[in-house]
């Protein structure tokens, strides 16, 4: 494990982040997680485009021995279907999915991924998680704009055959 005072190199932690995503998706949302190559991710982006709906981005900041931010990008129809699965709702009944409800669900997804990752990877250290913040993206995600910012890392995955991008950046605490 990395030194507790310095942030880990992001590429080194992406496998454990993917494991956390899988644990959360499977246990809470009955979701099937598929790691994606850029080409496969592009195919899932095409599926998302046909499904319509906005793209949501959930931000989750954390601070402790090091600090950082996790982001989860997902199409709104996937957020609705995950919520429906989690809460036993009818995914086709749009009246149950107000914007606030869907954004809350996306935020909680990011919260659980981040908390699970930190607990599994740094369980002897204390981190504080900030409340999630969710925005609606002005542009749909593409393979090119899904690339990570300098110093950050991304997981390109699919959940239930729809695309999910998880981004992670870390800094000194």
């Amino acid at each position: 494990m990395s030194s507790p005072k310095s942030p880990p190199p992001v590429p080194d932690v992406l496998p454990s982040l993917e494991a956390a995503l899988t644990e959360v998706a499977e246990q809470s949302f009955c979701g099937f997680v598929e790691p994606c190559s850029p080409d496969r991710f592009g195919e899932l982006l095409d599926v998302a485009r046909e499904s319509g709906g906005d793209w949501l981005r959930a931000h989750l900041g954390f601070a402790g021995p090091f600090r950082g931010e996790l982001t989860v990008d997902l199409p709104e129809p996937l957020a609705k279907s995950l919520l429906a699965s989690c809460l036993g709702l009818d995914a086709t009944d749009d009246s149950q999915f107000s914007a606030v409800v869907v954004e809350d669900g996306a935020g909680e997804l990011a919260n659980m991924i981040c908390g699970t990752w930190l607990t599994r990877s740094y369980g002897n250290l204390r981190f504080d998680l900030k409340p999630p913040r969710v925005e609606r993206l002005q542009m749909a995600l593409t393979v090119s704009n899904a690339a990570p910012a300098p110093g950050a890392g991304v997981l390109l995955t699919g959940i239930n055959d729809l695309p999910v991008r998880v981004g992670l950046s870390v800094q000194e605490g």
């Binding site: 919260n111 699970t116 930190l118 607990t119 740094y122 369980g123 002897n124 250290l125 204390r126 998680l129």
Partner: peptide, 9 residues
């Protein structure tokens, strides 16, 4: 009931 299951917490 928390996402934070760390020993520290």
């Amino acid at each position: 009931v928390s996402t934070d299951g760390s020993q520290a917490r």
